[in-house]
Nucleic acid binder design. Sequence first.
DNA 1: ATCAGTACTTGACATGGATCAAGTTTTGCA
DNA 2: TGCAAAACTTGATCCATGTCAAGTACTGAT
Lengths: 245, 245
Amino acid sequence: MSIRRQAIEAGAPPGVSCRECALQAICLPAHLPSEEARALEAAVQRGRQLRPGVTLVRAGEPMGALFVVRSGSAKRYSVTLGGGEQVHGFVLPGEAIGLEGFASGRYTCEVSALEPLSYCRVPIRKLEQLLERLPGLRHEILRLLGQALDESQRLRGELAQSDARGRVAHFLADLSHRLARRGLSPTEFRLSMSRADIARHLGLTLETVSRALGTFKREGWLRVRARDISVLQPDALAALGGGIA
Amino acid sequence: MSIRRQAIEAGAPPGVSCRECALQAICLPAHLPSEEARALEAAVQRGRQLRPGVTLVRAGEPMGALFVVRSGSAKRYSVTLGGGEQVHGFVLPGEAIGLEGFASGRYTCEVSALEPLSYCRVPIRKLEQLLERLPGLRHEILRLLGQALDESQRLRGELAQSDARGRVAHFLADLSHRLARRGLSPTEFRLSMSRADIARHLGLTLETVSRALGTFKREGWLRVRARDISVLQPDALAALGGGIA
DNA sequence: ATCAGTACTTGACATGGATCAAGTTTTGCA
DNA sequence: TGCAAAACTTGATCCATGTCAAGTACTGAT
C-alpha cells in the first residue's frame, strides 16, 4: 500500500501532457472538446512504473481513483472461495481500470501488472467535481461504462456458445483487434499472459488452450513460439471466433 | 414501432407517483434526495402494459430512453449470425433496461416481455438535462452501470467455472435473491422463462437444464411442477451455486 | 554458460454434457 | 371441455474437454 502511494507523483509533470501522449487517439480525453481535455488533464496524476506481478488495485478496497493504462498490460481477476483465480480480462494501454468500483464505491476485483506497467490516475473526488461542469466528460464516462458492459455481455455470449477452439480463436482475434487500434501489429505480438491465465479467462484448462493453439499452428493459421504469436490467417481466426467488429 | 409509440403516455398520470409505487425501495429514485426524486419523476413517462412476446427495444435502434420495469419480467437477448438467441439475462421489476446503449447511443440487444410488462421510461434527452444539475442522480446512474458491469463479470466467472448443475443452482439462487429484494417469496415462484431460455442464458442445452432440475428435485432441494418452483433447501442451492451475496 | 525452476506441450484415459429420439405433461384455443 | 401444439422429461449414445502423467522448452539467476 505504501508502495503504491509512493508510486504516484503529485500532479502531471509538464513533459508528459495528454497532447503528447502516444495514446491520444484512443484514451479518455480523445472525444473531449479541448477545454474539457485540459481540465481533465490537470486532475490526472501519473503513476510510476510498476513491476510485473505488482497489484494496482485490490478487491474490497475503497475506490480512490479511476486508472488508465499508459504502457504495459495488466490482468483483472478475482479470487474465488477455493483460492482459485477467475480472470475477468486483460487491460491494454488506453483502457480503464476500476470502472466496476462505481457499483459500491469499492473495487470488486484485483488488477495486477503482467508487464512493466505505467498508468494514469484520476482521483474520484476530482472526477466527480469535473463531472459537475463538463458535459463531454459525463458523456464519455457513461460511454466507457456502457462499452465495458456491452463487451462483458458479448464475451459471456461467446463463452456460452463456442467450443474451446472458438474461444481461443475469439481471444486471439480480439487481442489482435485491440492491438491494431493502438497502432501495434495485429499479426505479430507477444502474449503477456500465461496459458493458465488465458484458460482461466475462457473457462478452459491450460492443456486445452495449448492444444487449440497447436491445431491452429498445424492448420497454418498461426506460428507459435512460446508467447510469440504470428497470425498467418486472420480471417480463419475471426471466422471461428464468431466475428470481431 | 408505431405500437410502441402508442404504448407510451405523455407524462406521468398523477395517481401513480414514484412515492406510491410498490418499488419505491429498490427503484432508481430510492437513493435520491427527495427534491431530486421529484425532478426525476417529472421526467418519467409511464408505458402502457405490453403483452408477452412484444419487444420493448431492438438491437441497433437509437437509444431514446432508459427503461425501468414496473411489473412483469423481460428477456434480454441478441440474435447471432446463425439466427440463434444469446440470452443475456432476465429483467425483474425495479431493474433497468437499455444501459448498454450508453456505449454507442444505440441499444445493442433486444428486450422482450415474458409476462404482461409495464414499465417506466426516462427519455435520454431529459436524463442528460437532469444529470447536469442533480449530483445524486449522476451518482446513481454511475452506480447502476457499475453494478450491471460487476454482475455481468461475476456471472461470466460463474459460467467459466461451474458445471451444469452449478450454473442452474446459481441461476435459481440469484433469482430467489432478487425476488426477495422485491418483497416476493424467495422460495415459491413461477419461472416466466422457458427451459430453452434458461439454457441459452447459461450456455447449456434445454435437456441439461431439465436434468439438473430433475436431480435437485430427487435430492429434495426443490419441488418442480412445470414452471412453478418451490425451494426446499435454499442453502444447498446457494452452496452449489457458488454463493450469492 | 549452466542450471534450476517454471511454463508449456503432448499423450492416454475418463466423463459430463451435447445430440438424437421418444414419450409425457401443460397450455392455450376452439 | 377437449384438442392440438408447445413445452418439458427421460433415455441411449457419442464426443469434446477435463484429468492425470510425462516429457520438453523456455527463462532468469548465478
